[in-house]
Design a protein around this nucleic acid. Structure first.
Lengths: 186, 186
DNA sequence: TAGGTCATGTAAAGAGTTACATGATTTT
DNA sequence: AAAATCATGTAACTCTTTACATGACCTA
């Protein structure tokens, strides 16, 4: 997957490993991210396969390896791109704890859920700012799909937040405890 | 993470590795799943740490290792459970391709998006059926949190579907192509 | 009797992160 | 002068899946 994303970013022009990381952090990190420890070896592999080449750029005393996509790389990338989109059940780590929350006291459950909503909110704000910026800078028609994925991210955060708030609300208003017998017996 | 989930399932009573896998497939696979290849070694580790014990059950000629959670295991589990919920940016693999769809023809893009909506729909149906079943069998108050996470799953699928449909609609009605110059030049 | 399910397990491979190592340049 | 950023890379580790190996039982 990572190799295809790198090829994708290189479709817009030559980039160094460091720049690729920046681009990912900025524009895809809410649905895909990678560390330097995986980006640099991936570039090496792509180069060994002949899908990309690099030229060493020295500006002043700044050294860089700028990678360029080759025709063969474009073919591989476009071939991957047109394949059916597979729906992988994505891990939603936050649900794992909540799934077992009947073993937690209602008060603690509400406390943790509220903290979580805060956290999601701050991550959402970052993306919202990026969206404002993107809307100001570019025509959204020019980067239609990238803009759409950004909206996906924003709406996804909104969805998680409102699901949590609804759960909190129900816990606070419902008299029933939603707490396990098992827990009370400990 | 896996070890905590196993402990969580064992909070409801003794289970074998095989049964744990079944439970996961049935009740958590839309946000967390694991293979036998990770479940069995995890059970071994938990046993070595003394958090669980097993007794060998032989019914007829059916051999089973039934694992039981220990007091120490309960402590470790409840300790983990009350920790703040961390919001990890989850990989949404399907967005990766769509992010680069400006390099695909509009027709192919629409075709793939429609296929994807179908796929999400069929996964959603499975969960919907489970929800119906669960609602009929249990009091939703008894398993409040588990019921809520199920609703999360269903609504998440609905969210993905409607986001896709909106994108398809815009592509079909908008005259602007949303296709990269770069692509047209190839 | 063949295929499906029940049941446990291991070995190899894959994909990734974290931590470290290095060194220049830029900002505070 | 110290801290942050730019820039590349490796090694160890973690977590996981896939594929294989084994064997019993059940059903069409």
């Amino acid at each position: 997957m990572l190799e295809y994303i790198i090829l994708g970013f290189l479709m817009y022009g030559g980039k160094s490993g460091y720049e690729l990381k920046q681009r990912m952090t900025y524009s895809t990190s809410y649905f895909f991210d990678a560390s330097f420890g995986s980006i640099y070896p991936a570039l090496k592999r792509l180069e060994q396969k002949g899908l990309i080449v690099y030229r060493e750029s020295v500006e002043g005393s700044k050294y860089k390896k700028v990678y360029q996509i080759q025709e063969s790389g474009k073919v591989v990338f476009l071939n991957w791109l047109e394949k059916p989109i597979i729906f992988e059940k994505a891990r939603q780590d936050h649900l794992v704890q909540i799934f077992f929350y009947e073993f937690l006291s209602k008060e603690k459950a509400i406390e943790n859920l509220k903290m979580f909503v805060e956290e999601v909110g701050s991550v959402a704000n970052q993306l919202n700012e990026q969206k404002e910026e993107a809307t100001a800078k570019h025509s959204i028609y020019q980067f239609y799909y990238r803009y759409s994925t950004m909206l996906y991210g924003i709406d996804y955060y909104r969805f998680v937040t409102s699901w949590c708030n609804e759960l909190i609300h129900k816990l606070e208003t419902d008299p029933q405890t939603a707490q396990s017998e098992c827990f009370r017996n400990i």
